[in-house]
Computed example of a mutant assay.
Amino acid sequence: MAIQRIAIGTPQEASQPDAMRAALAEFFSMLIFVFAGEGSGMAFNKLTDSGSTTPSGLVAAALAHAFGLFVAVSVGANISGGHVNPAVTFGAFIGGNITLLRGILYWIAQCLGSVVACLLLKFATGGLETSAFSLSSGVSAWNALVFEIVMTFGLVYTVYATAVDPKKGNIGIVAPLAIGFIVGANILAGGAFDGASMNPAVSFGPAVVSWSWDNHWVYWLGPLVGAAVAALVYDTIFIGNSTHEPLSTNDF
């Protein structure tokens, strides 16, 4: 069972060259992803003055995030596993595919990458606001929490099916594409309600730069819960002890 394989790791692990390279890869992948995703929303706002809450703005956000995540996962896959998301890292930890200490290193790199991307966007656009994620009118924090849990469940379930499962075979080739597609589809489904984050680091960067923390807990708790449930469900039902071989950190 997944819980039985959870590993804390050793302090020396954080200083190993491969761990540092993996964290650096996560930093750059997150920077690429957030710069593209957040930047698309800022560009749309500037061009239309109508905001990204319009149907066309929602489609633009979905496409930008899908394309950006496809690239970000692809360029980091051979170094760090291409998590590009603290929730994915948490799901990998729950499934025994990464140690806690290495996961914390990833989290720090991912959050820093998001903050740097937002700072670069603010500087490059002459001080335009990097809007923090927020709830739409009539949507409560608990409504948004359910959205984030379900959407992140779908994302991490896809990650497990296409990238983690040792029986994935040739399907692993399309893992970055599938991961990008599920994020784009979820944005179309939930973007009008809570912004459809599914990624605590993506929410963290804009919140830091704009210093706006309203309901920010939703964008951490929801994705982490959804990721944990997806990891436990997929690992327990579809991988299991009899067929699972722990993956090396080079694979994920």
Results as ranks from 00 to 15, higher is better:
140 S>Q: 07
107 W>V: 09
29 S>T: 05
133 F>D: 03
93 F>E: 02
198 M>Y: 06
46 K>Q: 11
241 N>I: 04
96 G>H: 06
56 S>L: 14
32 I>T: 09
196 A>Y: 03
133 F>R: 02
100 L>H: 08
101 L>Y: 04
176 P>V: 01
246 P>D: 11
17 P>Y: 15
233 V>N: 07
111 C>L: 13
94 I>P: 06
189 A>L: 13
36 A>Q: 07
156 V>R: 01
211 W>R: 09
243 T>D: 13
133 F>S: 10
2 A>D: 06
243 T>F: 12
227 A>T: 04
83 H>M: 11
210 S>A: 15
209 V>S: 04
70 F>S: 04
133 F>E: 03
49 D>I: 00
249 T>I: 12
87 A>C: 05
206 P>R: 12
27 F>M: 07
56 S>W: 12
39 G>C: 09
143 N>Q: 15
74 S>R: 06
185 A>C: 14
149 I>T: 05
41 G>K: 05
232 L>W: 08
105 L>T: 12
252 F>P: 00
38 E>T: 15
140 S>P: 07
228 A>P: 08
227 A>I: 02
133 F>G: 05
72 A>V: 08
76 G>C: 02
151 M>C: 08
101 L>H: 04
120 L>C: 14
223 P>S: 06
166 P>F: 05
110 Q>M: 08
29 S>V: 01
46 K>A: 14
58 L>Y: 12
168 K>Y: 10
100 L>F: 15
84 V>W: 00
120 L>A: 15
51 G>I: 08
208 V>H: 13
246 P>W: 12
126 G>N: 10
50 S>W: 01
106 Y>L: 03
207 A>G: 10
70 F>T: 11
109 A>P: 00
124 A>F: 14
64 A>W: 00
91 G>L: 04
